[in-house]
Amino acid sequence: MIHNIRVKVNGEWVEACVPSHRRLLDFLREDLDLIGAKEGCGGGECGACTVLVNGEPINACLMLAVEADGADVLTVEGLGDADGLDPVQEAFVENSALQCGYCIPGMIMSAKALLVRNPSPTREEVVEAISGNLCRCTGYARIVDAIMQAAEAARAAESSKVGGE
C-alpha cells in the first residue's frame, strides 16, 4: 500500500509517496538522502537513528514514514545555520566529544531535545537523556561534559541578551 505524505523536514515541507512498511529512517536516508541519522540496530536499542519528531527525540527505526505525515521532523542536518554550528554541535567539537562519530548525530539530537526542554540539566539528567544512545568509543564522559557546556553556553548567551536589552 502506498501513502501520500507531507512531512516538514528540517523546516521544509516535503511531499512524497511511501509504501506502508517504509520506516522514517529509510525515508530520511534513502528517499531524502539525509544520511545523518544512522542505523545501528534497527531495534530501538542503540539510538543512532534518533531524530526529533515534533520536538521529541524518537528512534526513527521504530516509526513508519507514514506515521510522520503532518509532523515536524528535525535531523542533525537541520541544526545550525549557514553561519555556523548549533551550540550543541559546537560543544561536541570543542570537547572532542566524539571518536568514530557514528553515534554522534543521534547523540546530538538527544542532547538538543534535552536542552530545549530543560536548559539547566544536572549531570544525572544529561546521563538519562543519552542513556538510550549507545557509544562504543568514547566512554561517554566527554559527551556529558559537552552537553553540560552547551547548556551553560546557552544560558550565558541568554543572560547576556537580557542584560543587553
Partner: peptide, 8 residues
C-alpha cells in the same frame, strides 16, 4: 527503555 522509547 530510553527517552526515545518512552516518547513512543
Amino acid at each position: 527503555g530510553s527517552v526515545q522509547i518512552r516518547n513512543r
